Computed example of a mutant assay.
Amino acid sequence: MVGTAPRNTGMEGVRGGVGVTALLVAAARAIETHRHDSLAQDDYAEHFVRAAPASADWPVRIQQAPGGDANPLWGRFARYFGLRTRVFDDFLLKAAHTGGARQIVLLGAGLDSRAFRLDWPAGCVIFEVDQGDVLTFKHTVLDGLSARPRAARTTVPADLRGDWAGALADAGFDTRAPSVWLAEGLLFYLPAAAETRLIGTVDRLSTAGGALAYEVKLDKDLREYRDSPLYTATTHQIGIDLLNLFVHEPRPDSAAALEDMGWTTSVHTPFDFTSLHGRGPLPERNDALAGNRWVFAHRTRP
């Protein structure tokens, strides 16, 4: 059982901007954890939420949310994050247990606690790449809980808009070993050129047997959903205007680029996995999730 972390541990890095979205995902994971039909368990998530001044009064159980599951933010949107967590958990564990990957690289790791909550094979190393202030807060909260990772864990402070490969190499990443990569909730916030560089870097640092999962939006104009219940609820209830944080420019076709580089890819809607698991968001009118896609890739060439 996870203990109690100290409150208000000075998470300066998540009081505004993209960093605070990590708290939104943590709150969603906490709500998912306490559901009777939970798809993903994260006992650390609510401690991150409670420790940061920006989110200390947010709900961490669906019963605490106004309107419960009818609340677009803490109902449908939180369910989306819970489903996404489960799907990407499954992808990473399959790559490690059956695909032979022993290096797991979390790009834009945020307040993800996969190193602590998932059942990793012996010999795995988890690399968490993100901004230094986010990683510092995370470290403080987890230390306060006396949390112990289930695999070797290395944090890599780096700006993913720039050259982060050197920092990863300095942290001990081995380009000769099969690796699995995850960019969860990251690419929305990067310029198109940075996404192209990131995908190219993952290819350059990967060997045969490598795997990658990431999330993209295919909407031509995100602003057409500005008045959607999901975006308006997020803005009004917790003061996060996601559309102001997203980069509004044409996105590269990274799946096609990976195919050209010798990867096999599959592209899915979140609703595909709602059908698979029997719970999660379903399509609706004026749907801010309509353009979301989850991409899964495997490198087949040496």
Rank of each mutant, 00 (worst) to 15 (best):
F116T: 07
A208M: 15
R279D: 15
C124Q: 10
R102D: 03
V216H: 15
P283C: 01
A297F: 11
M261Y: 04
Q103H: 05
G10H: 11
R293G: 08
I62Q: 00
Q237W: 02
D143P: 12
G99F: 04
K217I: 15
L107D: 02
K94Q: 14
L212N: 04
L106C: 07
A193K: 14
L135T: 10
A5H: 12
E128L: 07
V14L: 14
D227L: 08
L186Q: 07
H298P: 08
A101W: 04
L212C: 02
I240F: 09
Y189K: 02
N244S: 11
A30I: 06
P72I: 01
D143T: 08
G200K: 05
W120E: 01
Q131N: 12
D133K: 06
N292Y: 13
E184F: 06
A211D: 03
A290W: 11
H248V: 14
V20Y: 13
V156P: 00
V18L: 08
V267D: 05
E195Y: 15
R204M: 09
V202K: 02
D221I: 11
A122K: 11
R148N: 04
R226I: 15
S113T: 04
H34Y: 07
A171Y: 06
Q237E: 06
A56R: 09
G185E: 04
A255V: 09
F273T: 14
F88W: 09
V25T: 12
F137W: 13
N286E: 01
T265F: 14
T4E: 09
V125A: 05
W263I: 01
L212W: 11
V49R: 13
F296G: 06
F246G: 08
D203E: 15
L142R: 01
A183H: 09
N71E: 03
R84A: 01
E215D: 12
S266H: 12
H34C: 10
D130W: 00
P229Q: 03
G162A: 07
T98K: 11
F88S: 15
L190W: 15
E184S: 12
P6Q: 14
H277F: 05
L23Y: 10
S266N: 15
V105S: 07
G262W: 11
R117M: 00
G210P: 08
W294D: 11
F77W: 09
A288P: 08
A115P: 01
L242G: 08
E12V: 05
D112G: 08
A28Q: 06
R15E: 05
G210Q: 09
A40F: 07
I126C: 04
W74A: 09
E224L: 13
A297C: 02
P72H: 07
L145A: 10
A255R: 05
W120F: 00
A122D: 08
A78M: 11
V105A: 13
L160G: 04
L92F: 10
V295H: 00
R153D: 01
R7W: 15
I238A: 03
A30C: 03
G200T: 04
Q63E: 15
L111R: 06
T33H: 02
L187W: 11
A151W: 00
F271V: 05
K94H: 12
G110W: 07
G99R: 05
